[in-house]
């Protein structure tokens, strides 16, 4: 885990520093002397391994992520992140938190009513929502549900708080969640349909439980365990989808920050954003692993993974 993170940071740093062109190449008005001062200030005059050493030392020992050099000149990168992360996380976690229960519910309904109209409709919607990219939905929603009908604000209202804030985030969150909801639905439907056909469900019914009791106590609980498997890819999916969505709805979050830092060649910022994304996805893996331990007694007690 830590090793992976270290590798990512190293590769990220090297890629960004070794990129063709100087970071100040386009600032034509600067004199050579000024440039030298700046380069010295940010250690750009030293060999790259030394730069990396300094970067890593500051990061680990002082929690210093460097300083923004273009967009927020002189502002520590960390402060910029502190400003943006909550906005993005609000969206992404919100989307994750509504996707799971809705998807689970739809999946259960589809599995229990297998081969019914409800099931077919759900399956049809699932194909569409899984296939069509979230930014297409975002565009659709923005045009119809915001611009044409005026139900929602067209873009995010940064100054809003409380309900108004949620209101202005409704469309982005819906656009972000449709895909994940469909994924969870599809997964749970397949999983539960299989569980329903399992021997222990049959035993549950033959020992006198009603079908509903059997599905509730044995089917659903058991199908939820492997759901943890889809949460990781789902969350990374939400995060990358959110980059585009943030752009469409002008939400000042990490996605927008990454895009503009790349376009403005503000590399310390880019690097920090990339590290942030890596950390989040590693943490997701960790959380899911821990969750497995809690839900699945075979791992908790047996200390081994299910085959």
């Amino acid at each position: 885990m830590v090793i992976t993170l270290f590798i990512i940071i190293t590769i990220g740093f090297m890629v960004i520093r070794l990129m063709p062109g100087s970071m100040y190449a386009d600032d034509a008005d600067m004199t050579a002397a000024q440039m030298e001062i700046l380069r010295a200030k940010y250690h750009l005059d030293k060999p790259i391994p030394v730069q990396y050493g300094i970067f890593l030392r500051d990061l680990v020992l002082k929690g210093d992520w460097g300083t923004s050099i273009k967009m927020y000149i002189g502002v520590p990168v960390f402060d910029v992140l502190k400003m943006k992360i909550p906005v993005s996380m609000y969206n992404n976690l919100f989307s994750l938190l509504i996707s799971l229960p809705i998807g689970v519910l739809l999946g259960i309904i589809a599995a229990v009513r297998k081969n019914s109209i409800v099931d077919y409709t759900t399956s049809f919607m699932v194909v569409i929502f899984i296939s069509v990219p979230s930014f297409i939905f975002a565009t659709l929603l923005q045009y119809y549900a915001a611009f044409r009908s005026g139900w929602f604000p067209i873009i995010y209202e940064a100054s809003a708080t409380g309900f108004a804030k949620l209101h202005s985030l409704t469309l982005p969150i819906i656009a972000l969640s449709l895909g994940p909801i469909a994924r969870v639905t599809r997964y749970l439907r397949a999983e539960l349909a299989e569980t329903i056909n399992s021997d222990f469900m049959l035993l549950a019914r033959t020992k006198g439980l009603t079908e509903a009791q059997a599905i509730l106590r044995h089917g659903i609980r058991n199908s939820l365990v492997p759901l943890a498997n889809v949460v990781i890819p789902m969350f990374t999916h939400i995060m990358s989808g959110s980059m585009v969505i943030e752009r469409i709805f002008s939400i000042p979050g990490m996605g927008g920050l990454m895009v503009s830092s790349i376009n403005n060649t503000d590399y310390p910022l880019t690097l920090a954003v990339l590290i942030f994304y890596s950390v989040v996805s590693l943490v997701t893996v960790l959380v899911v692993d821990l969750a497995y331990g809690v839900i699945d007694p075979r791992i908790r007690i047996g200390g081994r993974h299910i085959e």
Binding site: S198, D199, F200, L202, A204, R221, V225, P297, R298
Partner: peptide, 13 residues
């Protein structure tokens, strides 16, 4: 049933 390995719910005491 035939198969005691699959006829018990694996995650319930």
């Amino acid at each position: 049933f035939q198969d005691p390995f699959s006829s018990l719910n694996p995650i319930m005491i």
